[in-house]
């Protein structure tokens, strides 16, 4: 394929269009979890769920809501499980806007 970064750039562009057209399917909690994960992934590619829960954006979120948001983000392709793990560690798929 073409360089991965080119595909990522194209996805970011299309995502910006989705946002403009109001087609982004994330709830506010899902968006917060995603933004927090994006921020943490700038320090380390693999984001630990424990670190994510300590993030200021997630602090007030109830645990079941947080885990539901994580599950949705994985299902929609915004996050995926880090290689060799089934839970607890995630990799961000779409760069943050």
């Amino acid at each position: 394929m073409i360089e991965t970064s080119k595909i990522a750039q194209l996805r970011r562009l299309l995502h910006s269009m989705e946002e403009s057209l109001g087609l982004v399917e994330l709830s506010s909690t899902e968006r917060d979890v995603y933004y927090a994960a994006s921020e943490l992934s700038e320090q380390d590619r693999i984001v630990r769920s424990d670190d994510l829960q300590d993030h200021p954006l997630i602090n007030g979120v109830a645990k079941p809501t947080y885990f539901r948001a994580l599950k949705t983000l994985v299902k929609l392709g915004y996050l995926h499980h880090a290689a060799g793990t089934k839970t607890g560690k995630y990799v961000v798929d779409l760069p943050s806007e």
């Binding site: 562009l13 910006s16 806007e97």
Partner: peptide
């Protein structure tokens, strides 16, 4: 990388 995506 430094340009935020802008479809407009």
């Amino acid at each position: 990388e430094e340009n935020p995506p802008c479809w407009q």
